[in-house]
Simulated scan of single mutants.
Amino acid sequence: MSRIDGIAIWNGRSAVGTGSLSWEGDEIVAVEPSEADAAALAEYGIIPGLVDTHVHISGYAGERTVDWSSWPITTPAVEKSLHIAANARKAAAMGITTLRDLAGDENQMAVARVFDEGILPGPRLLVSGQVGMTAGHGDLFVPPHYPHRDPVADSPDECRKLVRHWARAGATGIKIYLSGGVLSMGDKVGWRNQTLAEIRTTIDEAHALGMPVAAHTHSAEGVEIALAEGVDSIEHGTGISSKHWADLVAKNVPVAPTLMINNFIADGTVSFSEEAQQKAQQVVAERDAGFVGAGAAGVRFVLGTDANGKFVKFGDQYEEIRMMAKTFEWTAERALVAATSDAADVVGLGGKVGTLAPGFGADFIVMKGRPWEDIADMRVENIVAVVSRGSVVFGQLPA
């Protein structure tokens, strides 16, 4: 059994003071008062591993420069799966020990199983298959005359069949599109994606098979459809305004705001086409106006970044959390809840991760400072060590 003693602990919801954390394999055995000098590790604190509810990890994982749009469609699946595993492990080393890939496929599902079985060390990986339409956001990452593309669904029956396909492949959730997107080629942010009949069928079938539905939207219409049709989470949430707050709070619908990536595209921090930059600027302006006051109103924002290792890197989640605290006028502790215990609940692992308590998985971060008291401490450079599934995957635990 492993143990770290005499350190400040934040358990995913509140501070528990100076104590000790014991774990055996991938299970926390005890969180209890410390037997060590309270000042022994006074400069350090422990928080649960982070949970990012919205990532895309199928991109190139190496150091050379590649074209982000063509690499995924010209790289063989067997090769791509190795990059997926490498990206996931990079994320875990930065303390993001649970990831939900929104719009994954059999490649991510295979890597997830390899991690779960301990064949390779890696974080907890959940994968949602996408159900989108021809010429929708999920389809427009492929040039129109390229012969190979991801499956689409253009009728209620096709939607139902594609949900069943993803369930059979091992998906843990479904992603749908209720508007256009920023990076898809020739797309318009305000385009409606799919009919109500198609959307309702997808949600019905996913729920019948025990899979939550995450809804991408950059429009007010998309937000209203999401609320009316019973999706399980809203991704991006552009179009949310004060008229939606009461419904969002009453239905307890989580929203992953993906602040950083759209800011980066809009302000040119990362280089994209002029079309993408203009769309991002439109999205950011509408999003920022609608988000003012939403945090205070109780809208359930959770950590979701769109990280893919290139535009938003694994580790940028720390900056995203600080941005969330500022944007939603949250305390540091409220921001950490959104990135740990509440995010874990959103991805269906609320009884397994995101909390430091006996019986939970052994995922945690040792950091310099007290990020639950001062959100400025929530920085990559303050990471001392990361434990994922009970093993140290970054740094060294303090003695």
Results as ranks from 00 to 15, higher is better:
residue 309 G to M: 07
residue 53 T to Y: 02
residue 312 V to Q: 05
residue 160 R to V: 14
residue 137 H to I: 06
residue 228 A to T: 08
residue 108 Q to Y: 12
residue 307 A to T: 08
residue 136 G to Y: 10
residue 62 G to Y: 03
residue 372 W to C: 02
residue 269 T to R: 06
residue 317 Q to A: 15
residue 310 K to D: 15
residue 304 G to A: 10
residue 99 L to Q: 00
residue 314 F to L: 07
residue 363 D to N: 05
residue 305 T to E: 01
residue 143 P to Y: 02
residue 82 L to P: 07
residue 142 V to L: 12
residue 292 V to S: 15
residue 131 V to K: 02
residue 20 S to Y: 13
residue 206 A to H: 10
residue 143 P to C: 02
residue 55 V to I: 06
residue 178 L to A: 13
residue 155 S to L: 11
residue 371 P to D: 01
residue 189 V to H: 03
residue 23 W to V: 05
residue 25 G to A: 14
residue 275 E to D: 15
residue 56 H to M: 06
residue 315 G to K: 12
residue 40 A to H: 12
residue 154 D to Q: 06
residue 275 E to M: 09
residue 182 V to S: 15
residue 259 L to H: 12
residue 177 Y to G: 12
residue 386 V to R: 00
residue 362 A to K: 05
residue 159 C to I: 04
residue 281 Q to S: 11
residue 323 M to Y: 02
residue 245 W to Q: 11
residue 87 N to F: 08
residue 234 I to Y: 04
residue 326 K to I: 03
residue 107 N to C: 13
residue 158 E to L: 07
residue 101 D to F: 07
residue 331 T to F: 00
residue 63 E to Q: 11
residue 365 I to D: 05
residue 19 G to C: 01
residue 270 V to Y: 11
residue 342 D to G: 04
residue 159 C to H: 07
residue 344 A to T: 07
residue 375 I to W: 00
residue 126 L to C: 04
residue 58 S to E: 14
residue 154 D to W: 02
residue 101 D to L: 06
residue 319 E to G: 07
residue 395 G to K: 09
residue 35 E to L: 14
residue 278 Q to E: 15
residue 379 R to G: 00
residue 77 A to L: 15
residue 390 G to R: 00
residue 159 C to S: 10
residue 354 G to M: 09
residue 272 F to M: 14
residue 311 F to Q: 13
residue 284 V to G: 02
residue 66 V to Y: 05
residue 255 V to K: 06
residue 74 T to W: 01
residue 220 A to I: 14
residue 181 G to T: 05
residue 21 L to W: 00
residue 385 A to Y: 04
residue 138 G to Y: 06
residue 117 E to L: 08
residue 202 T to Q: 02
residue 236 H to I: 09
residue 316 D to T: 02
residue 176 I to P: 08
